[in-house]
Design a protein around this nucleic acid. Sequence first.
RNA 1: GCGCCCGUAGCUCAGUCGGAUAGAGCACCAGAUUCCUAAUCUGGGGGUCACAGGUUCGAAUCCUGUCGGGCGCACCA
Length: 584
Amino acid sequence: MNLFEHFRNRVIDNVSGLVADGVLPEGIETARINVEPPREAGHGDLTTNAAMLLAKPAGMKPRDLAEKLVEKLLGEDNIVSADVAGPGFINMTLDDGFWHQQLSEILAVGTSYGDSTIGGGETINVEFVSANPTGPMHVGHGRGAVVGDVLANMLTKAGFDVTREYYINDAGAQVDVLARSLHLRYRQALGDDIGEIPDGLYPGEYLITTGQRLAEIEGDKWKNAPEDDWMQPVRDFAINAMMDIIRIDLKALGITHDRFTSERELVASGAVADAIADLEGRGLIYQGTLEPPKGKLPDDWEEREQTLFKSSDYGDDSDRPVKKSDGSWTYFATDMAYHREKQQRGFNTMIDVWGVDHGGYVKRVSAAVKALTDGAGELDVKLCNLVNLMEDGKPVKMSKRAGTFVTLRDVIDKVGKDVVRFIMLTRKNDMGLDFDLAGVMEQSRDNPVFYVQYAHARIHSVLRHAAEDLSADALSDAALAAAPLDRLNDPVELALIKRMANWPRIVESAAEAHEPHRIVYYLGELAAEFHGLWNKGKDDASLRFILADDPDLTRARLALVKGAAFVIASGLEVIGVVPVEEMR
RNA sequence: GCGCCCGUAGCUCAGUCGGAUAGAGCACCAGAUUCCUAAUCUGGGGGUCACAGGUUCGAAUCCUGUCGGGCGCACCA
């Protein structure tokens, strides 16, 4: 339980006390009472809105009610002051001993600090990346990959049982195009002059080596054969090869999925037909004709009767086709089946991470989930906005045709996976993101990756320095935990502990909101707090960590910074970035 | 034309379930810093939270409308 939750319970107990005293009426609603850190440090350690919320039902003025509650709260352990402020806030200050206790807890548990049980073991499915198996991933896929993976890490830390999943779109027309593109490269490998890659086929050079491998394995048996002979095997070969590339690149980003679901297999298993039959049984499938879109008409618009799902009954703007004119399922139909199947596998909470260009698709899938799960399934779609690749402030020009296309792998190889992961989280997922290939490698305050990593490295530098004067035993975790933490009473030292003690709350709120960027923002604040303390030592030598004439205080301060290193490392662990102990 | 997202300091962006005097970094201005634990530090100016209404003890946050930007819009994925 995070400390704010603990004191929230104390506040609610005391509200009950006021009910017992007859000050407040029976049956008063306490659910919306919260206890939070105040926005301004000058307002104390904790603040609660209880009096303002209860004033109306109690028929009292907020400040009068607050006064009554304050009297009660002052009897609680660790609360040294409680004051009424503004329209009826109660601001509380905790004694230093409480914060020292928090630090010693951090030292005891190390990087598992912040682990929470709010998830209660509930299963959650996070589907992310799901890039089409037609080529290597670009930087935009990388953002979705990181967002999904960190979402999963975060939820795991918060006590959920998470499955990472990848949906392979291997059933549509585009994989046939891939097969034809590969067949061309295969012929090329066998000596044919293929000339320019025709329009409509994938020109990427990544298919050249795949074509060579295909030629080595299969010889020239499909070189001049009709497409019907080779389409299926070449397509399978191509899809496998592309998925290998994708999996290797994901691995390079530190990402492993628990499960890959093939759209093709889903169709073959009859799951799509089942899902549509399910909807049909609910009277949600019909033959009909859609209105053309308002405004300018698509060039090739023609009115036609289609098999439609009545998604407009569940919040969508229009009904949606489930069958193409050739009789095969639409992508939407298979996706409905996929989400139905996920829920049947026990996932009532599903998170999908998509690119913004799929934003128009959210309503219909949400509608389908509602219809197919009787409201039991809940889908949260996280849309990831574009990543603009920059170099020294200027956009990187990319063109597939000119061969200057920058893949995700190129970027990982250039700046490292930790930098990629960190930068992808420096904006909220639905905001555009500039990724400056030069800027992210800079060693300066401007570079958030450096700033956070440097805080961790700086702490280890201090510990290494201390090891020259103190024995290894005196620096062990156990020894530091036994240090006289009550010597830490400077406001800046306590401010650092308070920031550290906020971490469990950040984990829980980020997990509940499904917002991974909050972790990175918190790390920036924590690093700033630490660097600030370090800088104080520049002006005032008595605030330095290592003091030759005061071994006890030195140990206490080393315990403090070691605790900070644990919390930074804990946060970096969640975002999948390795904390460094040395910058170079 | 319709839907979704966005609009917060000069720039790039945070802002927790509706909470107090709206924050950070950069840039700018003014000082400090050849001591130390390398990769500066301290302070300052800067805001009609796009605009107009509404809801209420209280709105950047919720609702309606307007303006501006992005994405999407039958049988692609």
